[in-house]
Design a protein around this nucleic acid. Structure first.
Lengths: 335, 335
DNA sequence: CGAGCGGTTGAAAACGATTTCATCTTGGTG
DNA sequence: CACCAAGATGAAATCGTTTTCAACCGCTCG
């Protein structure tokens, strides 16, 4: 194992002290152009890279940011997290940071002091973790809405626009009796999407039949159960929105089992544009948002915050409505 | 910001020196039971956790392991990586390690010195990265086969058994003309699966028609193109195996477009048991392997290696053959 | 001609652990 | 009773940076 080259080595090579080398590298003090040039050259020749542990020790920073994953067995499997992670990692790299995964159930003192800040996701209405991280003064930014109305440091999708486009599309197809499948009410994104849905729905001059709305887990089973609940009430929407694509999928499967065809007997609209949404038959009409991009923005924001730079605060990312096979014009016998 | 409690603080509280505290915490030297007890108590009371940066500096270790992601735009989106990551993170935690994502295109000196070791995946036949990490003496273990025949530190699935069960199942359904859709030949897992397929196929006393085999990218398009290639040769297998579920999916879609029904006109068998395989219609018959578990094993092995503990070397994980809708008994007009 | 003043550089003290080696007790042994 | 080994603890060096503050140099100015 070749000995690691340290700041002293480059200092010696140039004939200056470590202080000087450090100064040219960090740009703290004024250094003459001549010296700077020679130091930089030596750094290049010796292939010097500062030891992160040493730097971390004195700066009291780890140059590591975390993606926080709330307790939930399979949540990372969702490509949601994978995409966010990819985006975060890419920008982190540019700033000399590295990203780690932090699971809520592994959140000990030792891991806490190994990160400078966190990107939080899947926030609840009054998120306990938000409270917690505020209390221990761990810097964070949020990916998606929720947690606390006072929070300003978040990046979200333009849900408003997405749902508006979706509902307009469905309206134009002739649908008037729309239903809604809600995910767990504790999550802010569930509430927000529903809120916007109701709002847009009202703007179209329609009045919402509460019997056409039901709630369930955010899963295929949850979607199936929710649509089941609605159907057993003896009512039937011609189009149904779901909080997420996975619930939409469950609903579609359930309807299929019951001999109801999608979209002929009922149109179904999801949200998220999950991987499978374009694979399945019928493919799912949904709202696409770019989680990879959101991950990038969140990391940028967090690092700017950590490094004490300016950053513009709520970042709102564009979405794209994606009409697919699960929606169609209303059929006559459904009128 | 409350001042961080250091080893000196607990030393002072107990009335000993930092050396002693360090010794009881690391178990290096003999310490009297009485002193040990008091130190441990103080540690508890003061909520002392050692500063990782300081420790890292002197031990010349970072207590971080990496999951290496070879260059490929969306590869982390596969739940393959997400699952592996989840498994790794969980065991890493137990040993006081943390895991980071390392993308091949961000592999600079500075990130290299921020990790103690790597878990490598998606190895090619003569993997350049394996060579590279060997050369720079970065410890690693492999998730999946490949890289170098001399490697012993890997964890793999029992592919042999998986494919044997799959092919036997298909054989029992009456199929005799089997084809194969290969992924990119550079990857060892592609070659291995194909090799085993040929071997098992021969053991059944069948001879393989090379016209029934084709290669393509590991994607839906690749699967579609590969089956297209076979079909244009004017031959038609009654059952076709694919290197991966995603290729199988592409093939199924293509066949569907061409008016061929799966499984009635052709049975299709995938490998991996991807998320979507049970969602899609027809759901895909495949071989399930537990990537989460593999991630756990890989992290265990790597950390044992780093910490200088013993570990048993190639770990072979069980697989499970999962028959689904995409395979059925051969129909008469196909005989 | 000395004081004052930018502009550069260096000496030394952190940062918070681990580790080596010395020192100091004890208790056992011849 | 002297000696020695073993057991328990401590002093000090070290890891590789950053940072604070002092020192130095050559000028200009009064």
């Amino acid at each position: 194992m070749r000995k690691k080259v340290t700041i002293k080595d480059v200092a010696r090579a140039v004939g200056v002290t470590p202080t000087t080398v450090s100064n040219v590298l960090n740009g703290t003090n004024r250094i003459s152009d001549e010296t700077r040039r020679r130091v930089l050259q030596a750094v290049e020749e010796l292939q010097y890279t500062p030891n992160m542990s040493a730097r971390a020790l004195v700066k009291r920073r780890t140059y590591t940011i975390g993606l926080f994953i709330p307790a939930s067995p399979r949540v990372l499997s969702d490509s949601y997290f994978a995409e966010a992670l990819r985006g975060m990692t890419e920008v982190a790299l540019q700033y000399g940071y590295v990203v780690s995964i932090i699971y809520s159930d592994g959140l000990s003192d030792s891991v806490r002091q190994r990160i400078d800040g966190l990107v939080l996701t899947e926030l609840k209405n009054n998120d306990e973790y938000v409270q917690y991280f505020k209390r221990i003064r761990m810097p964070f930014v949020a990916l998606g809405r929720g947690g606390d109305p006072m929070l300003r440091d978040y990046v979200i999708s333009d849900t408003n626009r997405g749902i508006r486009e979706a509902i307009n599309h469905v309206y134009r197809l002739g649908h008037r009796r729309m239903g809604y499948l809600l995910g767990p009410l504790g999550y802010e994104y569930v509430c927000e999407r529903y809120r916007i849905f109701r709002c847009m729905h009202a703007e179209l001059g329609l009045s919402l039949d509460r019997r056409l709305c039901a709630t369930g887990e955010n899963s295929r089973e949850g979607g199936a159960l929710a649509i089941h609940a609605i159907l057993t009430r003896g009512v039937r929407p011609t189009a149904i929105f779901a909080s997420t694509d996975i619930m939409a999928l469950g609903a579609i499967e359930y309807l299929h089992e019951r001999g109801l065809r999608v979209p002929d007997d009922m149109s179904v609209i999801g949200f998220d544009d999950a991987d499978f949404s374009k694979y399945v038959r019928p493919s799912i009409t949904t709202v696409h948002h770019d989680i990879y991009r959101a991950g990038r923005e969140a990391a940028s924001m967090l690092i700017a915050k950590l490094d004490g730079r300016e950053y513009k605060c709520p970042v709102i990312l564009p979405v794209r409505f994606v009409p697919r096979e699960s929606t169609s014009t209303i059929s006559l016998d459904n009128q």
